[in-house]
């Protein structure tokens, strides 16, 4: 029998729409942790997030207020949940909520709830509209980017950008525009959903690669797994991918972590152009939805993240399996109305 410690961890992003949240993948990694056992508390925003109903993965779920409600509403809700559940740690997984959790981290720590998140400076430096300055400061190739707040600005950016160009939302969504009409259409669609600014980015031709990893906050790489997305949806989301062994990508990841002293999980979105030069397109400040591939390849990033937060000093991973693939599928669960009613009415299930 094992006498492993049981850690109670709250996890967000239990959704699984066509742009799925990382929560369920993170939980699968935590359930497979070798160094501790877990109890999982789901934190949801909507009643139809599938993770709420996955009772073999999530022990209990509480709804939490949207980030737009402000940090005090979130803190009050978390304090209530903590009174009931005695949480050891929270792993937030949505870009849009990270800032609130980073702000609340000291207060949560006072309650005994650990987090392991990037600093506000790290978070802000890598924001899409700050990417050119980030590239210059740390010596990375990045595409030219500009934040715009007004649709009329699309007419004046012609001097800086050639078509096609990429129109991006602050947190999510992007579209490749081949002319001003398409750019305007993306501007309206994306800003209606995610607000302003909209980021206009130079389109880099090439092959897209991604790396997920974990930094210890002191400049050391705890984990890094590069992949190539093999099946990409029209939203740009990977539904199939494979781990690869590109040393240059690993070196670039080490450079990213050591120069920024990155703290926590992350995903680098990279483009390799025809000349073999890597460009950083985006730095996502959290674990990606495909993280279970890294777990399957031998680097359990969610487990190592918890160990960092809990002061358990994880050893840096030195290896992973190359040629491991993930193939994502969707799965229809049958759920009784009572469960839906419970979470919708009481905010707990």
């Amino acid at each position: 029998m094992t006498d492993k410690k049981t850690i109670k961890i709250a996890v967000t992003a239990l959704n699984a729409i066509d742009s799925p949240g990382p929560g369920v993948s993170v939980i699968r990694g935590l359930r497979e942790a070798e160094s501790f056992d877990v109890q999982i508390i789901g934190l949801s925003y909507e009643s139809l997030e599938p993770g709420i109903y996955m009772h073999d993965l999530v022990d209990k779920t509480y709804q939490i207020p949207y980030p737009s409600s402000g940090t005090s509403a979130l803190f009050e809700r978390l304090r209530y949940i903590h009174e009931k559940e005695k949480l050891d740690m929270i792993i937030p997984n949505f870009d849009a909520e990270l800032f609130s959790f980073m702000k609340l981290a000291p207060e949560l720590d006072k309650l005994g709830i650990k987090t392991f998140l990037p600093t506000v400076k790290q978070y802000e430096e890598r924001e899409k509209f700050n990417l050119p300055a980030f590239g210059e400061k740390y010596g990375f190739n990045v595409p030219e980017s500009k934040a715009i707040h007004n649709i009329a600005d699309l007419y004046s950016i012609g001097s800086t950008f050639d078509y096609p160009l990429v129109v991006k939302g602050k947190f999510y969504d992007a579209g490749i525009a081949y002319n001003i009409d398409q750019a305007k259409s993306y501007f309206n669609k994306i800003s209606a959903k995610w607000g302003l600014p909209i980021i206009i980015q130079e389109f880099v031709h090439g092959t897209e690669f991604n790396v997920t990893g974990l930094g210890d906050g002191e400049g050391n790489t705890i984990s890094a797994v590069p992949i190539r997305k093999q099946y990409i949806t029209d939203k740009g989301k990977a539904w199939g991918g494979i781990s690869i062994s590109d040393k240059e990508m690993l070196d670039l990841t080490d450079q990213f972590i050591s120069s920024t002293k990155w703290r926590g999980g992350f995903e680098l979105e990279l483009m390799k152009n025809k000349e073999g030069k890597f460009f950083i397109l985006e730095i996502n400040p959290r674990i990606p939805a495909w993280v279970y591939l890294a777990v399957g390849a031998g680097q359990n990033i969610p487990e190592a993240l918890v160990k960092l937060a809990m002061g358990m000093n994880p050893k840096p991973f030195s290896d992973y399996a190359v040629g491991k693939m993930f193939i994502r599928y969707s799965w229809d669960m049958i759920v009784d109305l009572e469960e839906f009613q419970q979470i919708s009415t009481y905010g707990e299930l």
């Binding site: 190539r228 690869i244 040629g323």
Partner: peptide
Amino acid sequence: KNVAISDSGFIFNPDTGE
């Protein structure tokens, strides 16, 4: 050297995932 070639003619380039 690191390109994997199976007996069935399947070739895998671990650098690129192709």
